[in-house]
Nucleic acid binder design. Structure first.
Lengths: 112, 112
DNA sequence: ATTAATGGTTTAAACAAACGAACGAATGGT
DNA sequence: ACCATTCGTTCGTTTGTTTAAACCATTAAT
């Protein structure tokens, strides 16, 4: 497959991830989870306290973060515990793309 | 400085970059520039042809991409040539943040 | 100087995202 | 069985983004 075509596909695959990660509110959720992930996860209410967002807003953002594989969930009765996904697949995919782009740019600069 | 506080700052600094990079239209512009950057850059009209966007739309997206340091411009009379920025500072910043996050996640998994 | 070409900007409209209020579903306790 | 708790979802509103049409500024050419 054409390297350019591959690049197009790679970009497309990380689009949602980038959008999810670019939002300030979602960043606060991520940071809150990062600092608390030594325990078993946080509930929606914990996150509303920490981020100053309403419950529906937190719920909405958690859904988006879950869709892109950044976080995971575990239910205990009515209680849902959210935590950062233990797999870094999506992050790795983005890192790879960034490396690819950097390589092309550096090659271009050298050719100049 | 608190490592967490640092993380918060790092996230904040790449927000605009992530948002800029997440948009599909802007991705097509970037890809077009990537594949053509062996020459001296592309003009707005070249990009409208390649991306199927109107001239004002291209202009708008170029402005955003320029603001986050992803692309640069060179004027020759009335003609503006756009090309990918030769410095990868922003990309490197994002890579560093991703590494930081990955480190925290992996540490957490191990502790479990 | 006048005209043509290039491209940035402003404005208004279409579109999408984010939010809170209210509602609904499921579980747990009394 | 009943009520409280937890959390997701739907709905309408607000807010922000994206876009094209029209306009303006600059340069180049005759």
């Amino acid at each position: 497959m054409d390297s350019l075509q591959q690049l197009k596909k790679d970009f497309d695959e990380v689009s949602d991830f980038l959008i999810a990660l670019g939002d300030e509110k979602r960043q606060s959720i991520i940071i809150t989870l990062l600092q608390a992930d030594n325990c078993k996860g946080l509930r929606v209410i914990d996150l509303t306290d920490a981020t100053q967002l309403s419950r529906p807003a937190v719920s909405h953002h958690l859904k988006i973060l879950k869709q892109v594989g950044l976080i995971d969930m575990r239910s205990e009765g009515t209680k849902n515990y959210y935590f950062l996904s233990h797999s870094t697949t999506e992050i790795d995919k983005l890192k790879k793309l960034l490396n690819h782009v950097t390589t092309i740019i550096e090659k271009t600069v050298k050719t100049k």
